[in-house]
């Protein structure tokens, strides 16, 4: 005998047939499953770390450039224009204008402003452009998709709610998005809120479509019928039962949409319709920097690199989440 039998094994086996090898493994919560799978994806984890750092940076940026001004992004020091990174202010700069660290970590721009301070301020603005725009798009998309998916069969005169909302979505899809954004941004007073709103209201169609699909699939399932049979209110069914189930794809696309919104903002800046001063965003620092690409490449490469890293992080986290939430892929990965 290689393995000693547990004493009393025989008696136990007779009484508890489920014991031993047939023991039930405690079920993992879906969240833990996703997290376990996500954690193995090294690229996605790297992305998550970058995003956590970005969030901290954005908060610190807001803190140190607006509330407790350690780094002033607006101070103009003309004698010190276009200084390379890590240079020390020249002697002509008065003591009161000296940058906090005693040097320009990222150099200065064409007005002698501290690029480090501008990037710090921009981190908050860029991130909030992305997050606010995507929040707007999510609110519209989830509402339209949810109503179409759940109340789709109701009739409004001669068309059903579903037909009406989906035709509206079709119309929205047919607008050349970037062109529309350009037009509207060009016509509206140029401010940061308009840019957020315009990006938001031109990018909700995808969310609406898959929330609708998800709702239509879910509302036919047994647990919804059961919930109805129990007399639960519609609101409760929607928010307690349908929403959480539809959230997985929404979360994935929201993550990727933030990345997209940040890129759109930088493209708008490039065409001269971006966020206007006094706000610095990575997009407009980059767009302004292109004029000095030969003389002061850091004005171009630093913000460009920063956008690349952050957008990449959002994309990797989004794709990692998608893989981790896709049960089919997960099963494949494990055997």
């Amino acid at each position: 005998m290689t393995v000693p039998a547990t004493p009393g094994r025989r008696a136990e086996a007779g009484v508890l047939p489920l014991d031993g090898a047939g023991v039930l493994v405690p079920a993992e919560t879906p969240f833990r499953q996703v997290w376990r799978s996500f954690r193995k994806d090294r690229l996605a984890m790297a992305g998550l770390v970058v995003l956590a750092a970005l969030l901290m940076l954005a908060v610190l940026g807001k803190l140190f450039t607006e509330w407790w001004v350690l780094f002033d992004p607006a101070t103009v020091r003309l004698p010190d224009k276009l200084r390379p990174p890590f240079s020390i202010p020249s002697s002509s700069i008065g003591k009161e204008l000296w940058p906090t660290l005693g040097l320009y970590p990222f150099g200065t721009d064409e007005l002698g402003r501290n690029v480090f301070a501008r990037m710090l301020q921009g981190s908050f603005v860029s991130l909030s452009v992305g997050v606010v725009a995507v929040s707007i798009s999510l609110i519209i998309g989830i509402t339209v998709g949810g109503v179409a998916g759940f109340y789709g069969q109701r009739k409004l005169g001669f068309v059903s709610v579903d037909t009406l909302l989906m035709r509206v979505t079709d119309v929205a899809v047919c607008f050349p998005t970037f062109f529309l954004i350009l037009t509207v941004v060009a016509l509206l007073p140029p401010n940061i809120y308009n840019i957020m709103i315009v990006i938001g209201i031109t990018s909700w169609m995808g969310t609406a479509r898959f929330v609708r699909a998800e709702f239509m699939a879910l509302r036919e399932q047994d647990f919804v019928t059961a919930a109805r049979a129990l007399g639960l209110s519609e609101g409760r069914i929607i928010f307690r039962h349908l929403m959480p189930n539809a959230m997985a794809p929404v979360l994935v696309s929201a993550t990727i949409d933030v990345a997209h919104a940040i890129l759109t903002e930088s493209a708008l800046s490039f065409l001269g319709f971006g966020v206007r001063p006094p706000f610095a965003t990575w997009g407009n620092i980059l767009a302004d920097g292109r004029s000095y690409i030969f003389d002061a490449p850091w004005l171009f490469i630093l913000p460009g690199g920063a956008i690349l890293v952050v957008v990449l992080a959002f994309n990797l986290v989004g794709e990692g989440l998608r893989d981790a939430m896709n049960p089919k892929l997960r099963r494949r990965a494990s055997g």
């Binding site: 005998m1 094994r9 047939p17 047939g22």
Partner: peptide, 25 residues
């Protein structure tokens, strides 16, 4: 039983009515 939780002996012993000494090991 799950393939990774097999006993050293007969795999059916957890469900078997006639289990005796040698079976699990």
């Amino acid at each position: 039983p799950l393939p990774r939780m097999l006993p050293a002996g007969c795999a059916f012993c957890a469900r078997c009515k006639h289990v005796f000494e040698p079976c699990p090991g």
